[in-house]
Design a binder for these strands. Structure first.
Lengths: 235, 235
DNA sequence: ATTCAATAATTGGTTATCCAAATAAAAATT
DNA sequence: AATTTTTATTTGGATAACCAATTATTGAAT
């Protein structure tokens, strides 16, 4: 059974309201870094929402490093002052869901960098994993099968070899969204795959030879071909 | 009262265990995209953990786009096959917490790009917000006050003006961690601030004049000076 | 045998209750 | 009066009970 993604606007705007209330409270009480927020129970009463709503809002602000909950003690303002707190919460509230163009743009930026870094830093073990991913991809393609997954894993292997855990995380975040979009529009069919294999091999060689410039250049070309075929757009 | 960040290793490894069990289950049952997972209650019984543990693990995999929960219906495998699922979960489990060097490296990559894009895409309103952030920063510095927050907001204003919501999100994620590290090591004191103001102004001018190359170049110089002063390292 | 309405069971999400740690307050001891 | 010990309260987190939407099952009607 296939399912479609849906977003419930109700809870979403409620969370935004709670986050904004917390922002106002921090302003009114002039809470500085390290200061304690009122307890979850008090906040839920004050804002007339459930404690769950408060918890979710706090967890979101915790994700962005603005608050820190300590068990059996309280929730505290992180090492960020009132001014930055306001600005950042404002940004968080206004954040729209990423459009596909934004995802692609970011992916290319990240992958040109990870390819370069992988060429500089890859260990022998990293190289081995990339090679295995490459060959799994090549095998699938030569068998005429769909190889979107293997393609993905090749790119993630490079991200891991870059030795930069932040970029690695970011790649993990955006990759599935890109894949979903790719499959949704039914672009990038198997005709492209054979070209892809050769391009992958060239990228692998550059990383193997520890040639960062070349790795970046070949990754750039890879994306150029990819998006030219898939979307008839130059990037 | 100041608080220190701590990480409880217990729940963390428990979540990893649950995620790995889910991975194994998807493998053993050969679940394809769109297939339904067993209910949370069954999973909690099967893995001998609480339903909360199951929910948290599912939510994490949902964050990375691997699963999708539908209310009153079930949890489903996203549009990603078994192979990619395995590879990605493997990556997620191995993800280490980002080191400072990794954060800085990623920040620079992102900011060189957002500066460039902001120069290309900024609206008049974007420019106005950047200008306000710049002047708030300049005022603080000329008053001899600490201006870390205003500095941060200037950079975030540029990220917003880039028109790329993904990069904007990523900037919001890494910024507080960087700030925390900056303050922890008590580097980057006020002596640097006056240079910073001038550099900010130059970046602003380039964005105002819609000169992407110049904006990027000046941002690059800004970071070079910053990290040279703060860490005595070349980047 | 097929179709459709009615009912029972299942599901993720929500709310309420309980818990153990941490803090504050009070009382006892010196 | 100062300090320690004891008790009470507050805290975020864990658990359990509940809910409404969905799905599966049953059975009656054609």
């Amino acid at each position: 059974m296939k399912v479609e993604i849906l977003t419930t606007s109700d809870n979403y705007s409620l969370q935004k309201r709670v986050i904004d209330e917390i922002r106002l409270l921090i302003n009114n009480k002039n809470l500085e870094p390290g200061d304690k927020l009122p307890s979850e129970r008090m906040l839920s009463e004050k804002f007339e929402v459930t404690r769950s709503n408060i918890r979710e809002a706090i967890q979101k602000l915790e994700f962005y490093g603005l608050l820190k909950s300590i068990p059996q003690s309280g929730t505290f303002v992180a090492n960020i002052g009132v001014v930055a707190m306001n600005g950042m919460i404002d940004d968080i509230l206004r954040l729209e869901d990423p459009d596909f163009k934004s995802l692609v743009e970011t992916r290319i930026l990240l992958e040109l960098k990870t390819a370069r870094l992988a060429a500089l830093r890859r260990t022998d073990q990293d190289l081995q994993i990339i090679k295995e991913a490459l060959e799994a991809y090549a095998t699938k393609v030569s068998d005429g099968e769909d190889a979107v997954q293997e393609d993905l894993l090749f790119h993630l292997a490079i991200a891991k070899a870059s030795g930069n855990s932040t970029m690695n995380t970011f790649m993990l975040i955006i990759t599935p969204e890109i894949i979903t979009n790719f499959e949704k529009y039914h672009v990038c069919d198997k005709a492209l795959a054979h070209i892809g294999v050769e391009e992958h091999r060239l990228i692998y060689d550059a990383i193997k030879d520890q040639n960062p410039q070349l790795a970046k250049k070949r990754m750039k070309k890879h994306f150029k071909e990819l998006y030219k075929y898939c979307y008839n757009v130059e990037i």
